[in-house]
Amino acid sequence: MSTMSTPSPKESIARRLAPVLTLLLLASLMALPLVVTDTYSLHFIWKVLFWAAIAAAWNIAGGYAGLFSLGHAAFFGLGAYTSILLYMQAGVSPWIGMIVGSLVALCFSLAIGLLTLRLRGSFFALATIAFAEVLRIAVVNGRDVTGGSEGLSVSFAPGLVNMIFQDRASYVVLMAAVLFVIGATTLLIERSALGYSLAALREDEDAAEALGIDTIRVKLIAIAISAFLSAVTGTLYAFYILLIEPTTVLGIGFSVEIALIAIIGGMGTVLGPLLGAILIVPLSEYLRAEFAASLQGLYLLIYGTILIVMVVFLPNGLISAIRDPRSVLRRVRRRKSASSRPEEKADA
């Protein structure tokens, strides 16, 4: 993490200013509806903000704690389903449902974490897929409560209490606010003892343990925060789209897309997920609009290709290319010479 070193006084001032500027940028997104007013554009902006928010929530676990979850749809879906069910069955306001749903997701994440965090790396990724799939299958089969595979739809009843609005601008402001909160949380984490502990365990878990870091506890905190914020985003999604289906909100495909946006933008950075969403959402909208009829699947194929190219050539995401363009060239060059390099060192 280049953000954590202080090479020169000049850069140190830039470093002090960076978080302020970041927060200002995120806050200013809430003002977008003042500039843009047509429905289509607002919907588009909402989408960018939405993907940025859910990817940023993933980023706290995936990017900062190195917990490469492929099951974040579960947390998102728990938020969406809990708040919708509470609203439809008991008339509970989504504002309260959002908190309840997020707490449910938080508990679920703690359960997963307690059960799987002694596993490392890709085992954790697999375990998250399994948990998310169990949840999805349960929802599909719990027809009486969850509406099964058709999902649940909410009737359009505008009102602040219902979190349902006549105008899209309100939705945009709301999503921008959530993105702001997630970004601010990420910044706070980055600068706290928790952030340093996470940075350390990402580099070397054994060394982190030897320095007194309870790595499991730290990871649990990260995944809990991440799950909570994912579920908040889930509620917002549910009351904007007004329809949730298990395949879309609980499927593996969704989980992969969440991770993909954070990775493409830049994991372990505050602005990476926003950057990823700004690039990927327009691309997918364009490809879908242009080719949907003739070539369905093209946009996911391109997603996949971008993902491969990114993790192989630019594992720190696009944001690293913006911060230090030369490092990209250096990396590509090193890659080329690396093919003649001997085997990677085995740990003793």
């Binding site: 995936g62 190195g66 490469f68 492929l70 790396g121 890709s122 990724a125 992969v256 991770a259 993909l260 990775i263 994991m267 997603y303 996949g304 290709t305 971008i306 993902l307 491969i308 993790v311 192989v312 594992p315």
Partner: peptide
């Protein structure tokens, strides 16, 4: 790890 997981997911 992350490259291994996501390169094959991308594939």
């Amino acid at each position: 790890q992350v490259a291994q997981i996501f390169a094959t997911v991308g594939l």
